[in-house]
Simulated scan of single mutants.
Amino acid sequence: MTPNEAYAALNLLHSVMQIPRRCTAHHEKLQPFHKSFIDYVSDASRSDFFANMDHEAQNLKTECAFRILQKAPDGVDCGDISYEFRYGTVACGPGTGDDISLTWPIEDEEAGWGIDKVTRLTMYKLAFGVVAERFSAGDPTFQSEFCVRLLTRRFFEHTSFSHFLLHEPVFDNSRRREFMKHGILKKMPLEAVDIPTISRLVALQFRHLPSTMAHKTVGVSTILNSLKLSFHRLERTNLPDPWKSSCNHIRAGVWGAGMDQDWKTDFEMDGLLRCTFCYERFERQLRNWKTHSPQYTAVVLFTFTGNCCVEFRFIDPNDGISEWTYWFWCYLEWEERKKYGSIV
């Protein structure tokens, strides 16, 4: 929408809206004099404007975000300007961003010649933020190959928040096969994991599998499972509980005496989710598998930053039933990533 079109649309609303002058529109907000006007516009039964205003607004935001990002597939290089935002730091360029359309040029002598570049970068970061936010929220529109590649290739640096917005949607079983097919998820041996580089936050899913499922799980042979199940004749009620009374982090799912267990939790070595017991057990299990089965396969999501999300899943060799799945982030140098098929 051009400035003329925008002001023509607003021309009859001066009695209910505070409308900034055109020369200061980039500094001031368009806002109502009273909240009742927004309530009226938002109520379709009264104004007949929108059946669902929030839905319409989200659709418009989505459309704008994709249009901006598709106009700058190689990022935006705006020189010495901050690329930081909520989810991390966007990688610079090499694209110029000139194809991002500015239908409302800004005329501001004090801002200097670079204001259009700043505007384009701001639009790019806002569009990037929309993708990150909706991806994290599980919006199926954003659970696409395009969005995953954007989030793994266009960050120079992730925040801890952005780390775990990626792992659940990407490793979800409903999309795993697709992402493996397109090379977003790769496989690599555990020996490639450099334990000292693992980030402090770890996610865990723990399950006691029915014996019929334990035979089918990757990582422990059917014969080994059968022998262990026959030898121990384990009942679920006799399996040790991996959750200790000292664990003060939250778990979600199903557990209890005599029940199947299927729950998830997050913990870390220090911080709000600190659990020394769980973290030391995780490191011990990982080291044991690296030592005794260095070629054991893990699934990994590579990113441009070098920080990679690893899914480490195995059947507990001590009982042949318990399934442990850890997700954690570790650092891999470019040569190491390339060795296992990464292109970022």
Rank of each mutant, 00 (worst) to 15 (best):
M259A: 15
V41S: 00
T305Q: 15
D116N: 12
P3Y: 15
S211W: 04
A57G: 07
F156M: 15
Q143E: 11
I68E: 13
V90Q: 04
L30I: 08
R281E: 13
Y340A: 07
R46L: 14
F267G: 02
D316R: 13
D194M: 09
D99L: 13
S211Q: 06
P317N: 03
V90E: 04
F155N: 04
L30E: 09
D43G: 01
D80T: 15
H215S: 01
G183T: 00
A192H: 01
E335D: 15
C78E: 08
T152A: 14
E107V: 06
K125N: 02
K264A: 02
F304C: 11
L12W: 15
R251F: 02
N225S: 15
F161P: 01
A203I: 07
P73C: 08
G88M: 09
D74F: 12
S162P: 01
T96G: 15
Y326M: 00
G320T: 09
H167D: 13
V76F: 08
T197K: 04
N318C: 07
V16F: 03
L272S: 02
R153G: 11
I198E: 03
L209R: 01
F312H: 01
C64T: 05
Y326N: 03
G88R: 09
G271W: 07
Y340H: 06
P20H: 05
L224T: 14
D43K: 01
L185D: 02
L121Q: 05
I81K: 05
S174L: 03
K181C: 12
G183C: 14
N225E: 04
R154Q: 12
S36V: 14
G129S: 07
N248T: 09
R284L: 10
I250F: 07
S42V: 07
F302N: 00
R284E: 06
K29N: 01
V254Y: 11
E283D: 05
V90Y: 03
L301C: 01
S342D: 12
N318R: 11
Y124P: 05
